[in-house]
Design a protein around this nucleic acid. Sequence first.
DNA 1: GTGAAAGCGCTAACAC
DNA 2: GTGTTAGCGCTTTCAC
Lengths: 364, 364
Amino acid sequence: MRDGNENDPTDLPRYISAHEVAERAGVSRSAVSRTFTHGASVSPATREKVLRAAEELGYQVNDLARGLLANRSQLVGMIASDPETPFRALQISTLSRLLIENGRVPVLITTDRSETGQASHETLLRYRAQATIVLSGMPSKAFIDLAQRNGQPLIAVGRSEEGPDHVRVNNALAAQTVVQIFAARGMARIGLVTSAVGSPNLVERERAYVDAARNAGLEVVVERAERTDYEGGTLAASLLLSPQRRIEGVFCVNDLMALGVMDYARNMLGLAIPADLSVIGFDDIPQASWGAYRLTTFQQSAERQAREILRILDRRLSDPHAPPIISELDVPLIMRDTVRSPKPGKGKGEQTFTTARTTEGTEK
Amino acid sequence: MRDGNENDPTDLPRYISAHEVAERAGVSRSAVSRTFTHGASVSPATREKVLRAAEELGYQVNDLARGLLANRSQLVGMIASDPETPFRALQISTLSRLLIENGRVPVLITTDRSETGQASHETLLRYRAQATIVLSGMPSKAFIDLAQRNGQPLIAVGRSEEGPDHVRVNNALAAQTVVQIFAARGMARIGLVTSAVGSPNLVERERAYVDAARNAGLEVVVERAERTDYEGGTLAASLLLSPQRRIEGVFCVNDLMALGVMDYARNMLGLAIPADLSVIGFDDIPQASWGAYRLTTFQQSAERQAREILRILDRRLSDPHAPPIISELDVPLIMRDTVRSPKPGKGKGEQTFTTARTTEGTEK
DNA sequence: GTGAAAGCGCTAACAC
DNA sequence: GTGTTAGCGCTTTCAC
């Protein structure tokens, strides 16, 4: 058996090539290729032989070679800062799962908030990734150009500017809803807790909130922490909630900050929520529903967002010249226990108010 | 200018090849290759010409072709279930960052807890990934064999069995430390909250805890939820903390469950922590330090873990035949506010007890 | 230091 | 339906 000997003393394991499978199966190299190529035609007999040989040898198609030929791999890049943060982690998790279910291979590129992400993006170009999804931050112009120039689709999440395809959220409507609720509760002085990050989502929420508050004749105070995280929330709370200010309701641009605000208000200032202070967040991260918080917040569905991203990706791949595809998602308000009731007998339990209409997509 | 015309009416952007760069720079194809190959020798003059041409054309080396030649890509797979969970998200985030810093490309493969992960792993083989890191779950035998057979290194986290390289944690020592602390506080009836998942880490923690408790003459009750998450914690608490049982201290196999236990104990049973009930967790997720919890817990450093993984990876790549590499990490106990004091004047603030020695690695 | 030529593993176009 | 052939973009001998 000098041919298919399994006990080769050069014991370094290595990948098997289609050539070896062909030899073992007694067919041509292309027959092997065809059995593993979707939609190619092989007779059941050959196919069977090939499959057996492949199985025995432990053959795995080389997708590097396939990609080289197609000038495109199945890789899809996800660019994100703070990937360990609850909502971002959920986005990444959900998107990865969906990509895998669709035969794609998710690559996770982490960036600093400060970075342009340029260097990271080049990796995705060099591997001929099918597309790049920017989950956070604002891709720089150079970044967008580079993708454009090489014909790699780029899909952004949570931006509003013109340019690449993106999926967004109706921040303004959410912010207006908050003001409406606070006003209906008879509040006169309300606050906004945000960060200095300045991402489009946060800026939109802030602007719409402040505008709506002014229009409603409410006094509004904006507190800005350095980062959009739990510690930022506690810090903002320490500045915003001085007794003389007598803030009655706070809208936080994300849940993480809201939870920091709540903990600070309760533990450091001895405030009762919602009796002394109402708090509303954004995202509906898992922690928002925990017993210690029961935060009223706007629900951003990572699942729907991921589905939209995939839909955009498919459309974009099938028509590279289509105009920018933009998808807007609902953010229903989840009523929990951090907003004081307007009158007795209301607002307990978990109610869902849909506050924004669906602009795109109705599947499932 | 029929040669380098930039306004090609066939407006589909595409990737540039080294051939085109060579033409524009007026050098040979290999000269281009050499400028982009680390350690190859090119004259400064040629190099300069090539770099300019590449820049102008927006050239990106095709790593698919490179990998085809090398029979190995820079991809590194991370296999994980529940990637949205706080500690797992931190592991993924940290590991991704380190991999990128080291020129690797992290691929995130999500699996169901139930899945063998076999199908996902094949993707990594087909792309000739440099290695697979299993962050959770137990890779099946078939899975391990497949990697082995194709010569792809596989590194596991949190297992104890023989077989692949792995980084582990001294679960037994941590569990024993908990019992020691509870005993020193004069407790007689203690509990363990875990899940039915049965991962090696959890099993080790449980066994060591129960054994230590029995040896110390403490009565110990084990409560097992279906999953190792927040809801599992609340459920376990509801079963474990019946008034007649009078449990005084609970060790939870991870922080997520511990937080669920705390919320249930406080909100549903009206217990004060730590006056009525002491709680100790494991992992030190960000939420553990939040004001609402201030959980005493064992700190698992994602950063050190990731560094160890990279160290193992490098060693393994440089010597494929080395015996299994095993690395054990410390889990210092972070004393916060969920364990009652043995006597007045102790246990406030945040103290760090190092409970396990370092077995491997001292860099940085 | 440079260019020519071979070949990595694969798919697709082409004959039969 | 099958085998033969060419070629994807790259690195790496090999001459010079």
